[in-house]
Every structure is written in C-alpha cells, then in structure tokens.
Design a protein around this nucleic acid. Structure first.
Lengths: 208, 208
DNA sequence: TGTACATCAGTGAACGCGCGTTCACTGATGTAC
DNA sequence: TGTACATCAGTGAACGCGCGTTCACTGATGTAC
C-alpha cells in the first residue's frame, strides 16, 4: 500500500535546510527583478545554482514557493506585532494609541528589509491560489489586536470592534505598500498621517 | 519610407467598435474566472468568437488589453468623482465631509457593476507593466480632490494637503477592494467606517 | 579511527503543452459614380 | 438604384519558445559497528 502525500517532509540535513532557504531568498530577488508574470521554477532553480528538479524536493509546485515566501514575510511581521502588543497593550488604550506610529514604522522596516517585498505582497494580492494567505494573515493580526484592545473597550460590541480593527489592519498594510509605489509622498509623512488617522479612530471608539 | 507605429488606429466601422468593446468585456469575465495567471490572448479571442490574430488588430499585445480594461474602469470611476465634486465642492468643506460616504458608495457601485472588477484592480496592482496606470489614476483623483478642497483649506500648505489626500485616496480604494475579499465584514459597515475616518481626517485638516 | 551502508540531496535529459505572435490571405463594408 | 472598387475586419495555419514537471539516476552525508 502506498500513499501520495502532498506535504514535503522537512529536510534532514543542514545542506538541505540552507538550500530550502536559499530558494526563497532567490525567489524574492527574482520577483523584484522580473515580477510575477515572468518568474518561473526553472529560473529560481538556476539562480540558486540548482537543476530544476531540485526545487521539487522542497516545494510541491510553483505556488508553494510563493506561498512559503509570503508566509515567511508575514511571520516576520507578526513577530514585530507581538513585541509591540507585549510592550504597550497592558498599559491601556491611550498608551497603544500613542505608539501606533512605532508599530507602523517597525512593520515597514520588516518589509523594507525583505528583498522583493512589494512584489511578494502583490503576488499574494493577485494570485488566485494565494489570496487566502494574505487574508488569513490580516485576520490573524486583527484578532491579536482585538485581544489587546477588547479589555479596554468593554463598551464596544466585540464584532463591531473586530470589523473596525480589520479595516484598520487593511489600511495599515495598504499604506505600507503605497510607500513603494508613490514617490511623491514622503514615507515619514505617510506613516505619521496614517498613525494620526488610526489614533483618531481609536479615540472615536473609546468615546463610544 | 515606412513607420512602425505602436498605437493602433481607432476602428472605422461599427462592427469593429463593437468587437473592440466585446474583447474588453470578455477579458473582464475571464479575469474573474481564471485570474491573471492563466488568462491568455488566445483565450480572450476564442471567448469573443474571434480567431487569435483578430485581437491584434485592436490591441498591440496582451498587456494593452489589460491596460485598456483598467483604463475603462478608472474612467468610469472618474465620472462618479466628477459628479460628486460638481455637486458638493462649491458648498464648502463641511458639505464635502458630510457626503464622503456617498462618494465611496457610488464608487463601490461602479466597481461592483464591472465584471471581474476586483481582478482588474489586482492585475493593475500586480503586473509590472501596468502599475503606472493605477498610480496615475490615483494621482489624478488626488489632484481633482485637491482642486476641490484647497480653496476651503487655505491654511494648509498645498503639498502637505496633496500628500494627505493621496493617502486618503489610496485608503479609499483599498477599502473598496477589501469588500470583495473579506466576507466577515459587512460592506455597509466598512464603507461607513471609512467615511467616518476620512471625515475625522478632514476635520483634523480644517482645524490645523 | 576506519569503513560499509542506508538514507538524503541533487542531476541530466527529456516530455507535452499552451503561450504570444506573425504571415499571407479571404470575406465584409461602405462609397463614388 | 446598381455596381466597381478601395478599404477595413477577420481567418487558417503555423512558428519558436520557455513553461512546469517527471523519470531514472549519481553523488554526498552521516552513522553503526
């Protein structure tokens, strides 16, 4: 009796773990250089110094590579979020509102550090089989923020709060993406304006 | 002496104008059905009841089709914007702030009416050769709003106002896109929350 | 410490496929007389 | 009103190409004795 399992076993050797990570790095670079339309498994393998079949040892297909790349970026963004929540959430909603700018800046720094980050985000946005990754991540962020805010906003119905925060998350990421496309707007200005808007939104919630 | 001209002559006959529009309609449908990754010129032509070369009479290449599709959508959105400005801008900033929700709703209605609209927007977002279309359109909207607002906000430096409005435009469109991806948030709630946020932003500007 | 051996990592060569696009052509349309 | 003719709209067949992926294989690694 045989099974065909879609999920790849994690690599056993050190060489393999490095190869796997290198494939993602290379995929990010290539996404930045040629875009989603022209990136290919053969191209990724070649740039990583591998023959085409080697890629398939680690990723089931082309989209699995992009999905892993997307998840890696979002994991890094989540780490930033967790640090921020741990630091500011216990001290109340005012404290959080006052430091929204820090969160945006830290998140933006993660994106900036990732080669081809904008294109990763765009790929997640535009590839049918990957849209769910982005949505799941945004929902996750929303829920973490909900847990952080809810205790201080007991007057607001939980699902209304969820929806507001979900929107705030979407807008935060949208602003971050805009930094890479709109060279007529200064990054610092955009981030501080978004922070201001989100702060207004939080005060608005707190008053309700 | 011969010239090779990239721009296609506009069609001369009625049949041709209908064919040209049909190609765009079909491209929108297919974008919705199979996504950017799998749409092809051959597919578009076939669905339109044409042989592949016929498409090239109207559009220089694959991206010209998508670009035309994107521009058509943005032209329709612009019409909505112009109507809104004409109606509310002369009556001052308060009047505009009070009716931001109308603008968002009208814009959203245009998107909803367009087959495959989300995928058009995503294609504009994600295809390297098309990103400029979206950016140009957002800048155009920004400038129209700037013209409408500036007379009532003489205290705010023009380029600061531009940057704020640019951001507001980006966020407005981001929220519109979100309506199609996030089924846990009610369209009406999202739109009214965005309207509220943008209103807060305008008041914030007016106070400065 | 040396080596036999099982397992893991990576290869060479090839596949069928559908892509975007072009060519030389035919059929449809509209207009001048 | 009829028709000859120029122009415009659309076709049939084919192209070279690079794609994603698979196969049966070889070389590298690590471990038990």
């Amino acid at each position: 009796m045989t099974f065909t399992v879609a999920v790849k076993r994690p690599p056993q050797q050190d060489r393999a773990r490095k190869t796997q990570a290198r494939l993602l790095d290379v995929a990010g670079e290539l996404l930045a250089e040629v875009g989603i339309e022209r990136i290919s498994t053969n191209m990724i393998a070649a740039r990583a110094g591998l023959s085409p079949p080697a890629l398939y040892r680690y990723y089931g297909d082309k989209y699995a590579v992009l999905e892993a790349l997307g998840r890696r970026l979002m994991t890094r963004q989540n780490a930033v979020l967790e640090a921020w929540i741990e630091r500011h959430a216990p001290r109340g909603i005012e404290e959080m509102a006052a430091h929204i700018g820090d969160l945006l800046a830290a998140n933006s720094a993660v994106t900036r550090a990732e080669p081809g980050a904008v294109w990763i985000l765009r790929a997640l946005h535009a590839t049918p089989s990957l849209v769910h990754v982005r949505i799941e991540s945004h929902r996750h962020v929303t829920e973490r923020l909900l847990d952080a805010c809810a205790p201080h906003l007991s007057g607001v119905p939980r699902d209304q709060l969820w929806q507001r925060l979900r929107l705030a998350v979407e807008l935060g990421f949208a602003a971050d993406e805009m930094l890479y496309e709109e060279d007529r707007a200064a990054a610092q200005t955009v981030l501080s304006d978004v922070a201001r808007m989100l702060r207004l939104l939080m005060h608005d919630l707190a008053d309700a």
